[in-house]
Design a binder for these strands. Structure first.
Lengths: 382, 382
DNA sequence: ATGCTACATGAATCACCCC
DNA sequence: GGGGGTGATTCATGTAGCA
């Protein structure tokens, strides 16, 4: 299919059927291509826009070799206001294309990230974190006139303050040896076999490491989600999305990058599904306290003690409420009434077991839930 | 001298003789006080302005204790544009007061730093570095809904691109074990005896650590220079300046902070300071197992064998946990589950290499750590 | 003195479903 | 759309108390 026909096909599919050109690279300036994508259609956007580096002259190392600079045509802007206009244009379209609960990541350096952050806030985006990619092996400052610029900044934002965004907290915690993941990420720059080269010469001046995208995608998407990258380059986003069982859409101007990206992604094998479906803590395992009463795990009239304190008592009513000094309500409300703020009643109310030991009522919930799963097992085995 | 007379004296000295009120705290809003200082008169400005945090509700730790919020009157702004106006006002005056070869540091978080950076650039400042203060002991994200906000951002800027600014490269290199100082700084938050308290209660909600100012002042001033802090607070800038033999000028509104700062600075001996006496931590070298998964050294879905036993298997999940018979957890927990006591998972779990031989996963860790320190990476890549 | 445990706390934009 | 009910969630460090 010719390029022109390809573009026509994409536009046709999107406009007519509101379907998305999944797992494809669309050629062109993202300011021209984004308008063809439907409203509220993608789950995540990762953007690595031009940094507006404003390098003035060649830079030489102490051994007098020349540093290959980022002076591609796509990184030339004549002024801040021109850069701002450009940024507003693509960010506005990203906002339209993003689902209301979707999220946006943008990466940059001090040359451009302050302008990006300000524009994001002015467009109504709500910043969740700024994350620092700390390079374990940055290029030193050869002339010794500044601090080694050893990091880049990522902004993670959603469309509004009340967006119900995805954050796979437990996956992040697991990835970090069971400690909460922080806003400082230690990742080497892209080099070695991962760096795409032709005849030993790197074809993209700012190729991002796959490890960076791995963490972003694992943290803020689910398998099957659609990830859009409006500055696709050599397709790091697509390669990692493919590996993690996510769908992707890339937008890129340069044919050379597109070809390299297509070859690269074609070589990626997705991970097996059972390695991707992570044990997500279910939010829907809610069990009303009254169910325990119905199933005789706790009896109407039984006495519960707050925080193992034998003097703070409540009586279980037949409807599953607790009665405290004439007042009655749920285990949570009763606990809140005593400690003065919202709290989890399952962990605050204790009963005396057959040995005379205090046990939180949560153990009864556990007992009940495991009993149910045994029943299910029984049914399945029949 | 009464307060009014004191202000009159300052204005008189500045206006008439162009002398500076050195080593003094001027009381008032810096937007009112700065205009009294002469043009091009100070060498360095350090500013820790309000962050515009916009906290909405109380926050509780999992142990149900309440987090003391930053809800001081000085951090209340009704909108971004009001915050921008405020920032433009004081930054514009700072630009006027700063010598042409002087420098400016501003600290902030994602709530405000993008706006500050944009305004700086729009006023003509030239950014030299953004520096990341990485907190070794930040407050966690108690609800597990974002990444731990473990850093703050500093911007180091000069008045124009051709300013002949101070950077004590060799002092910085010496301070960093003879390695070039990078843009990521590892410094604990201000606590313990350094934190100023009255009756055990901190008097300023956002007191900065002296180690941070120590590095800034050592890097970008000379002895005898004049350092201005328009948001002086409890005087960290003054205390460190005094210790390092620099002159300082503080501007602060709150009388309580001023009094604490005066007492604090009076206790400082301007002795030759010992850099190593400051609690500056080096970067951690801990490597989570998940990092190897992120870097594709081990793949989701891959099978590991316990103690080379082909019958005791685990599958690597995409989050870096191991899955064993439906259970999942870290390599260490998985190993403990099997052998019954705490153990080092790195040495107990084996994979099959390309020759079909068992190799402990520790060899991958070694491979990763040696790979990122390769010299050619340093030289070849931006 | 030393070691151990318990407790306090820090610039934090900190939930979500269902009626 | 608002309000009430249910329940998920933390790390490093300094200090106090006690054996």
């Amino acid at each position: 299919m010719s390029l022109t026909n390809h573009v026509k096909y994409i536009k046709f599919m999107c406009a007519r059927y509101s379907t998305l050109p999944l797992n494809q690279i669309l050629q062109g300036d993202c300011r021209d291509i984004l308008p063809d994508l439907p409203d509220r259609s993608v789950d995540l956007i990762f953007a690595d826009p031009p940094y507006n580096l404003q390098l003035q002259q060649d830079l030489y190392r102490p051994d007098r070799s020349r540093v290959e600079a980022v002076n591609d045509a796509w990184d030339q802007f004549s002024s801040f206001s021109e850069y701002d206009e450009f940024s507003q244009a693509w960010l506005k379209e990203c906002r339209r294309v993003l689902k209301d609960d979707g999220a946006l990541w943008v990466i940059g350096t001090y040359h451009n990230i302050f302008r990006i952050g300000t524009i994001l806030q002015d467009l109504g985006f709500w910043i969740l974190n700024d994350v620092i990619w700390i390079k374990t092996n940055p290029m030193p400052n050869f002339r010794g006139v500044r601090f080694t610029n050893a990091h880049e900044t990522l902004i993670w934002a959603v469309k509004s303050r009340d967006a119900n965004y995805i954050f796979n907290h437990h996956a992040m915690k697991a990835l970090n040896d069971d400690l909460q993941m922080r806003s400082d990420w230690y990742i080497p720059i892209c080099s070695g076999p991962e760096r795409i080269r032709i005849n030993g010469k790197k074809i993209h001046s700012t190729q991002k490491p796959e490890a960076l995208l791995y963490r972003i995608i694992l943290a803020t998407t689910r398998p099957g989600d659609v990830i859009l990258d409006p500055f696709f380059g050599t397709g790091t986003t697509g390669a990692v999305a493919q590996r993690l069982g996510r769908n992707w859409i890339g937008i890129e101007q340069e044919l050379q990058y597109i070809q390299a990206a297509r070859e690269r992604i074609a070589r990626v094998n997705p991970a097996p599904a059972d390695a991707l479906s992570l044990p997500v803590r279910s939010r829907k395992s809610r069990l009303p306290f009254g169910t325990l009463v119905e199933h005789h795990l706790i009896k109407p009239g039984q006495i519960l003690y707050f925080d193992r304190n034998p003097d703070i008592r409540a009586m279980v009513l037949s409807n599953g409420h607790l009665s405290v000094d004439g007042w009655s309500g749920s285990i949570h409300m009763a606990a809140e009434k005593i400690c003065g703020r919202p709290t989890n009643g399952w962990e605050r109310w204790y009963f005396l077991d057959e040995h005379g030991n205090f046990q939180p009522v949560a153990v009864l919930k556990q007992k009940f839930l495991s009993g149910i799963s045994k029943e299910d097992d029984l049914k399945e085995n029949l």
